[in-house]
């Protein structure tokens, strides 16, 4: 009888352990988005304008440099931060100042942000400045129907004219 009870207890303990494994390997369900929500991902890297102006070196300056370093035009390395503003339905949705990367601040500014919004027809206005003066250099206004569970990616590529919208 004692042996039977022991085997029973073992079965219960094994069962409890593997029931735990089985349950928590898929449950409880994690609600990532509500059923009426969509996702906006703002994602891009952009090298902003240099902070100062490029200038020409004088002949005297060039003569002081090693022969392989004698470049006439010299530009400051530091870049301006990228300023980004996004409005949704006329209200500010997101604002960010992305500093350039690198110790000398001469790299790209990188932006990644995920925003959860209510699904439906939405109107967006995006503005970007990549100049040290803060002057807005790129703008885009667009309307889009954000279906529940869908992702809209707001990308930026200066060579392709500015903001690019991807939607599944």
């Amino acid at each position: 009888m004692k042996t039977v009870l022991r085997y029973l207890a073992q079965a219960v303990l094994y069962g409890a352990f593997f029931a735990f494994v089985g349950y928590f390997s898929t449950s409880p369900r994690f609600e990532h988005l509500r059923p009426d929500e969509a996702l906006i991902r703002i994602s891009f890297s952009h090298a902003a304008q240099r902070v100062g102006e490029c200038r020409e070196r004088s002949d005297e300056e060039l003569a002081k440099l090693a022969p392989n370093m004698r470049l006439r035009t010299v530009c400051p390395r530091e870049r301006a931060p990228v300023l980004l503003e996004i409005d949704m339905d006329g209200k500010p949705l997101y604002k960010l100042t992305a500093q350039p990367t690198g110790l000398q601040k001469d790299g790209q500014s990188t932006v990644y942000r995920r925003l959860t919004v209510k699904s439906g027809q939405r109107h967006f206005a995006a503005r970007l400045s990549d100049h040290s003066s803060g002057v807005i250099g790129y703008t885009k206004e667009f309307s889009i129907d954000l279906a529940p569970g869908k992702v809209m990616v707001l990308d930026f590529n200066a060579a392709q004219g500015g903001f690019i919208i991807h939607q599944g």
């Binding site: 089985g22 928590f24 390997s25 898929t26 994690f30 609600e31 990532h32 988005l33 992702v151 991807h166």
Partner: peptide, 24 residues
């Protein structure tokens, strides 16, 4: 009794609102 199953295929244009997460 409870075979391991996949969810729907990955779709980078969409996000699943609820997921059967492996909490472990």
């Amino acid at each position: 009794f409870k075979p391991a199953l996949s969810g729907g295929p990955a779709n980078l244009d969409a996000v699943s609102s609820a997921l059967d997460l492996d909490w472990i």
